[in-house]
Amino acid sequence: MKLTLRIWRQSDREARGKMVTYKIDDISTDMSFLEVLDVLNEQLTATGEEPVAFDHDCREGICGACGMVINGVAHGPQKLTTACQLHMRHFKDGDTIDVEPWRARAFPVVKDLVVDRGAFDRIIQAGGYISAPTGSAPDAHATPVPKPDADAAFEAAACIGCGACVAACPNGSAMLFTAAKVAHLGALPQGQPERASRAAAMLHAHDEADFGGCTNTGECTAVCPKGIPLTVIGAMNHDVLGSAIRGR
């Protein structure tokens, strides 16, 4: 395959960036999208140009490090798939592909396709946990958890924190990410004591980070590589309202 890549290049946080066009040949359909960038970077290194910086790590779709908007879609055209697991058999010979970083004020571009997602960690710091200091736990079977609750918790907990939901949201909202954690912990008996305060505190951190508000457009769940359902946002709204009504 021969491809034309148009990639966002930006040298650091303060620099102005622009789309730069590269031609690339000899792409195999078995390659992953990131392996195409590897090939491009080898080519750039050979000609003395700076390679394209992009975040990636596990390359098996679970660490959440990689993320780029490919032809206007976060993580590219294949549903339920991260960029590292997107294979070139989904593209055609001669395609022109636009590659851009996640765009959000809360995710400043660090370099090229690398963005700073520290805001996600700050949302978790605000309350995305159960306070269970090491050593304090009762026996694991002390509290049975109904299977449907455990399954619901798991479904929400599958979030990999990649940020695609923010990148795709027309409002730049991180509500799917935030709500996934609220829904995960809120579905379990262990998460009940902090349930109301958790939702309110995490929402506050979300808003403070300059993410936009959710308007339930569903763009987030459409691009989510783990298929986190939109219902988690309802669960979060429920807990936030509960918190406001009960005053804590």
């Binding site: 206007g72 765009r103 959000a104 409002n171 909202s173 936009g212 508000g213 457009t217 763009e219």
Partner: peptide
């Protein structure tokens, strides 16, 4: 307020216009 927040949340837009994946009514 939400529209302004949304605008503020994404100061730089995408060069490749995002394809609508969710519902048209919502957009």
């Amino acid at each position: 307020t939400l529209a302004l927040r949304a605008k503020r949340a994404r100061p730089i837009g995408y060069a490749h216009r995002p394809k609508v994946q969710g519902s048209y009514a919502a957009r």
